[in-house]
Amino acid sequence: MQNPIQTSGNQESLIDVIDLTKRFEDVTAVDTISFAINRGEIFGFLGPNGAGKTTTINILTGLSRPDSGTIRIAGQDYIKNPKHVQHLIGVVPDESNLYPELSGFDNLCFCASLYGIRKQERQEKARKLLQDFGLEEAAHRKFGGYSKGMKRKLTIAAGIIHNPQILFLDEPTTGIDVASARQIRKLISDLNSDGTTIFLTTHYIEEAERLCNRIAFIVRGRIARIDTVENLMQLTEGRHIVQFAVSPDSAVICENITTAFPGLQCRTVPGGVFVESSERVRVGPLVRLLEDMGAEVSEARKVRPSLEDVFVDITGIEVGMMKQEKEKAKMGGEA
């Protein structure tokens, strides 16, 4: 058993996933993962492209069937009776998939009707959500003409119009402008404050750090670690990181640093290097070494360890690369 169910404290779990496995021909997309999501929490699900995040969401929402494993949602066997549980679930997929030919208002009313909500009630809910999400002026414009940020907001509104107990958000802020992303993060927080449990996948680690109560890191179909953000951050205690802005940046610099100072760890990032140690890092000898190597050092600054560092430690994956891949994939998909 690689992944015993982990919850935080004695809270009531809303979703229990036990030994879930999904294969696509020779590839094991999800490999015996187990976790529980507590009622009322924001649960982050982080991992690089192809790690198994979307496959897991698809299984949890009923769009895919696992090869083995158990899922209980609100105590009910979800694999046997997905339709009995789907009214408890709201889903915001990674692409805004509402109907382009319908207006924002009609889209919301239609989505509400899928959950059996009567006409008057669904119109009231749609009006309220459009107001809450700042979309009332665009209510009667066709969804196809909305900006990306507006589309994301309306897609979230459509996901919650039936008051689900749990909302699955797949990359809610990818590919949209900063202001819209900030609004969406606030909406997510507000929804959670109102009692909605949230399952969030994102490749913006700082977003997960800010929003989530607990986070699972998934890599190559397996869960590498699940814990509260506080506990994950404790892993960075006693770590000292200094960032050097160096020109030119190259992998050779890191090799020379770790050869000259065996107690240090070094990794290259665009425009420089990160040097890390369990003790305080002395900057002077490092700058001298870099200058002796012919590199120009323009800045050296202490960096507070972040969840991103924890992610890199646990998964061995560079976050910058993960972001670039995801954004490239998203732009390609929408082109």
């Binding site: 929402t61 009923g62 769009l63 009995h84 789907q86 679930i89 889903v91 509402l98 899928l114 059996g116």
Partner: peptide
């Protein structure tokens, strides 16, 4: 958008 229909109860 067909996924929305498949997700409905």
């Amino acid at each position: 958008s067909f996924e929305r229909l498949l997700l409905a109860p």
